[in-house]
Simulated assay, not measured.
Amino acid sequence: MNARTEPEPAQPAAIARPPLVRELLLVAGLFLVYKSGRQLATGHTDEAFRNAHRVWDLERAVHLPGEGSVQSLLLHGDTFAHLANTYYATVHFPATAAFLVWLYLRRPAHYVRARRILAAMTTAALVLHLVVPLAPPRMLAATGLVDTARTYGPSVYGPPQSDHLTNQFAAMPSLHFGWALMVAVGLIVATRSRGRWLWLLHPLLTLLVIVGTANHYWLDAIAATALLGAALTVIHLPHRTVTTAGRGQEGLVPADDRALVGAGR
């Protein structure tokens, strides 16, 4: 009596990790575009302040909580303000870079998607920075807010008139918050630990810092969230394809799809 032979289960496809040199060049190029693109919006001081008054008035019209309520928490002592300024100055880029490195090494398929989302969101943000230059609330006298970086330090910005390295009129959307939210979302999706939702503390703390230090309005964070939501909707992880020629067999799939199949098993 011949034993029935069942088809062997399909083996997980190999994870395709993008070439390291290419990825370094892509990420470096994204950073250079981010830095140089911000410079294109300099010199629009009057328009930036007009837009700032509009944003401030709109927030009051829709009854958003005042940014001052968050800043008052930091002004109880020099220590809190200094810690918030340090967080603003030092966490933004290293946290995002560490996120991409970890995904590249441990979750290549998720890395590809995260890199594409960050690139799309950053590009869209730079366009908005050019179209809608916006002075941050720390520059707007009507807000009554303190520029905590200049008062308590450390500060990443010089006087707007002489600061040629950064565009201080690029408040909306807040890439500080948008990138932090993407880091949290990316890690929640790419991991399965019970405590993975704690990654949301990163964008929450970032939100409190950017508002409390008067570097951003609430609407800056809302705009960044909308951009990230649009990017997440459009840019998906690749889907697995299955052939109809035989049961339990998988068809040939692109590299990113093979990565998804391997990561999902």
Rank of each mutant, 00 (worst) to 15 (best):
L40Y: 06
G246I: 01
L26M: 12
T148P: 04
F99H: 07
R107H: 12
R38L: 14
V156H: 03
G186I: 05
A170W: 00
P137S: 12
A10D: 05
A119W: 09
A52H: 11
F80C: 08
A16L: 07
I117T: 03
I117A: 01
T166F: 13
V183P: 07
L181S: 01
L126C: 06
L83K: 04
L145H: 09
A114W: 01
A16T: 07
Y104N: 07
T86I: 03
F99L: 10
G229H: 06
I222W: 05
P173L: 03
G43A: 06
L187D: 12
R54V: 07
A125C: 13
L103R: 04
T86A: 11
S155L: 13
R116F: 01
T243N: 09
G29L: 07
Q71T: 04
H216E: 07
N51S: 12
G66I: 01
F169C: 11
A180N: 04
G37A: 10
S193W: 09
F49C: 00
H63V: 13
L165G: 09
W56C: 00
D147W: 11
W179F: 05
H110W: 03
T123R: 00
A226P: 06
M172D: 00
P154R: 14
P133M: 08
A180K: 08
T191P: 00
R115C: 03
I15K: 13
V209D: 03
L32T: 14
T213R: 06
R115W: 05
E6F: 10
V209I: 13
A149Q: 14
Y88I: 02
L232G: 04
L30T: 09
A14R: 15
V21D: 11
R265D: 10
T191C: 03
H82Q: 13
A13S: 10
G29E: 09
L252Y: 01
R4P: 00
G251A: 14
V132E: 00
